[in-house]
Simulated assay, not measured.
Amino acid sequence: MSVRRKISATAMAFALGVGGLAATASTAQAQPARPTVRAATVAASTAAEQTAQLAAAPPRQDSAARPVIFVHGINGLANTNCAAKWKNAMQAIKGSGWRGELVTFGYYNRDRNCTFQHPGTLNTPLETIGLDLAWDIYNHYTLRGMPVDIIAHSMGGLITRYALDAVAKHVHGAPPKLYVEDVATLGTPHDGANQRYTDLCKFKLQCRQMAPGSDFLKSLGRNPQSAMGTDWTLIGSGDDKYVPLPSAIDLAHSNWGHKVEYPWFDGLSHTDLWQQSKGKYAQLYWNFYDKHWHRTTGPAPLTVAKNGIYWWWRW
């Protein structure tokens, strides 16, 4: 197989996601990812002092004024343009009247136009990236008593899940607490990606960590909560070739906040989940407070994600 074909297969297997939105200037760091986490570990040694300085957890409320952090998924070429990736999403959310800051999180060496930028490769552990995300949230928002919301696509949802889980479990190197009020995941392989594709790219660590039954997935807590509580919305499509619908909405487990399913005949692909903000689609939804599936015609995935991070618990 030629080098060109190898790269092409890898890119396909990684469910590409090379898009984004006009975020603020890149804050690329000179040091590699692992020293960044070791620095975070040193900071964690004063966790008791930092916790004492934190104000009481902010109240939970429906709000369009919170900062929103967008976390992209795996990229087979490790070069996500956050500004292009999230452009449609940010325009749609701003257009709906959202007043909070909209920022992006990047974690590859060649990522660009990301608000928060960390160096890494396709072999950087998701645990390392998750801790980087946790410390960005802590240093820029939690220390100031500000809650944030998160919209994550594909592997970005696993990174987010690990960030909250690590803090909740007091993992060594994690910040003392986080204020994350809402998380919406789009096509995230909560129970593993399509093995047909993870087998194609198993020579990369991040792909192996997303494979069904991986040690990483087994170690993750479900519905991890921040210090103020966190309301999760899981969104998936039956026409997603890379992440099976039951995995995207973690169908086998009911300890989440909300789930939204787009049937296969809606024709929404893995990429459409982070691009589509217009139109009406057949969908089924489930909420923790009644635990019943409801059939309806509802909005596009990005609008559902926006609604999910607006409402603090009840839709």
Rank of each mutant, 00 (worst) to 15 (best):
L164M: 15
V180P: 08
H258Q: 14
T185S: 10
L178K: 05
C207F: 00
G187K: 02
R161M: 14
S254W: 05
S254Q: 14
W264E: 14
A248G: 11
A193T: 04
V183S: 05
D240S: 07
G192S: 08
N255W: 06
P212L: 06
N255D: 15
L158E: 11
N194V: 05
L220G: 03
P189C: 04
R208T: 09
C207H: 06
I159Q: 07
K259A: 09
S154T: 05
D199P: 00
T271Y: 03
V243D: 03
S214Y: 01
G157P: 08
G157T: 08
L143D: 00
G257R: 02
P176I: 09
G229T: 09
G229L: 07
C201Y: 02
Q209L: 02
R208N: 03
W256E: 11
N223C: 06
V260Q: 03
L217E: 01
G156Y: 01
S154I: 04
G156K: 01
L251P: 00
H170Y: 11
D239C: 01
A227R: 08
H253V: 13
C201R: 10
I235E: 03
F203P: 01
T271C: 07
G236W: 00
A211W: 00
G213W: 00
R144H: 15
K218S: 06
V260T: 13
G156N: 08
Y197E: 07
D250M: 09
L186N: 02
W135N: 12
Q225V: 04
L268R: 06
V180R: 02
G213H: 08
R196K: 14
P224F: 13
F216H: 04
D165Y: 11
Q195F: 01
E261C: 05
L251N: 07
R208W: 02
T271N: 12
R144M: 13
P244T: 02
R144Q: 15
H140K: 13
K218R: 15
Q206V: 14
L251Q: 12
A193D: 00
A227N: 11
K177C: 14
G257C: 07
V243M: 05
K202T: 00
Q209A: 04
Q225P: 00
W256V: 11
A166Y: 08
T233G: 01
G267I: 09
